Computed example of a mutant assay.
Amino acid sequence: MRTFTELPKKLAVTRPGGSGRPGGTRRSSPRRSLRRSPALAGWLSVAPALLIIVGFTFYPMVQSMLLSTDRWNLLGPKTFVGAENYRTILAAGTFRESLLNTLVFTVMTLVGTYVLALATAMAANRELASARFVRTITVLPAVIPMVVAGLIWKWLYEPDHGLVNTLFGLVGVDGARWLFDNHLALPAVALVSVWKEFGIYALILLGGLQRIPDEIYEAATIDRASPWRQFRSITLPMLRPATAAVFLLLLFNSFKVFDQVWVMTEGGPGNATLTVVTFIYTRLLTDVGVASAASVVLFVILLAITVIRLKFTSREDS
C-alpha cells in the first residue's frame, strides 16, 4: 500500500517537462543566463572600461564645462558669471599669446617630425644590414619619459657648460642662450619633441611603406622613372593613410604639449614658450573658471580637427 509521501515523487517524475523537482521547474544558473543573452554578456564585459571612461574622461569634461561659467579660487564659494570667463580669455593677450605659441610649436614639430620620420622609415625599409640598427636606434628616445628627456636637454642647452655650446665652440662658433632667448626658446623645446617622438612615427610610416607592392617600383624602373619621380608619384600617394594618421597624432600631441615646456622653461622667458596647457596650469590655482574656459576652448579646437579629418577620410574612402 502506497503512502501519501510517495505521491509527490511520482508526480515529479511523470509530469511532462519534469526535472526531478516538484512541478517540473528548473532553476537557471547565472552562467546559463549569460549564454542565453549575448547582449548582457557583452555589456558586462565592457562595463569596467566604460566605468573608467566615464569616471576619468566624461565626468571631468562635464565638470570643466560647468566650472567654466563660475568664478572660483578653490577656497571661497563659487560665483556664477556666465560667459564672462570666455570673454576674459579671448580678450586677454596672455591666452592669445599662448595659443599662437602652440600653433607655432605645432607647425615646427609637425614638419620636423614628419620629415625626419619619413627619411628614417625609408632608410629602414631598405634591404641593408644597417636597416635593423636604424630601426632600433630610432625607437630608443621614445622609451625615455618626456620629463627625463626635458631635464637632459635642459642640461645640454646650458649656456656655459652645456654640450651643445661646447660642440659649437669646437668649430669656432659662439654658443647661444637657448632657453633664455625669446626667439630661440620655443624652437629649442620643439627640437626636443622632434627628437623624442620621431622614432614612433617612423615605425608607422615604415608599416605604410611595407604595404606598397614591389611590382609597382619594378614597373616604374622599367619605364625609366627616376627615384625622385617614383617617390613623388608612387611613395607619397600610397603612403597617404599612414601620413594622415601621423599628422593627426602629431596635431593632438602638439596642442597638448606641457611636460617638456614646464620642465625646461616653465613658459618663459617671459611668455615665449607659454602654451595653452601651460596657461591652464598656471591659472588653475588662481581662477578655476578661467582655466576651465581655456580647457573648453582647447577641447573645441581638438574636436574641430577631428571632424575635419573625418570628413577628409570619408571623401578619400568614397
Results as ranks from 00 to 15, higher is better:
Ser292Glu: 04
Thr306Ser: 14
Asn182Lys: 02
Val134Thr: 04
Gly17Pro: 08
Phe180Lys: 01
Ala119Trp: 12
Ala188His: 00
Ile308Ser: 15
Ser130Phe: 04
Thr286His: 12
Gly267Lys: 05
Arg177Asn: 01
Trp228His: 03
Phe168Asp: 01
Asn253Lys: 09
Ala219Gln: 04
Phe258Ala: 02
Ala244Lys: 13
Pro241Leu: 07
Pro8Trp: 08
Val111Phe: 05
Ala49Cys: 05
Leu44Val: 00
Thr136Asn: 02
Ala294His: 01
Leu75Tyr: 13
Thr120Ala: 10
Ala293Leu: 11
Leu66Gln: 10
Ala39Cys: 09
Arg126Cys: 03
Gly268Trp: 01
Asp214Arg: 09
Pro241Glu: 09
Trp153Asn: 01
Leu170Trp: 01
Arg229Tyr: 08
Asp174Pro: 01
Gly20Glu: 10
Ser295Glu: 14
Pro8Glu: 14
Arg224His: 13
Ile152Lys: 02
Ala242Gln: 09
Ile305Val: 14
Leu310Trp: 15
Trp43Asp: 08
Lys196Leu: 07
Trp155Phe: 01
Met108Tyr: 15
Gly23Lys: 14
Arg21Tyr: 14
Arg315Asp: 15
Pro22Ile: 12
Gly93Val: 09
Ile222Ala: 08
Arg132Pro: 01
Ala39Phe: 15
Val143Leu: 07
Leu205Arg: 10
Tyr157Gly: 00
Leu236Gln: 00
Thr273Val: 08
Phe198Met: 06
Ala185Asn: 01
Thr235Met: 03
Ala291Val: 08
Glu215Lys: 04
Glu97Phe: 12
Val46Leu: 11
Ile212Asp: 03
Pro237Glu: 12
Arg240Trp: 05
Val115Thr: 03
Tyr59Leu: 10
Arg2Ala: 14
Leu75Arg: 09
Leu191Phe: 08
Leu128Thr: 14
Leu303Met: 15
Asp70Glu: 13
Leu75Ala: 10
Gly24Met: 00
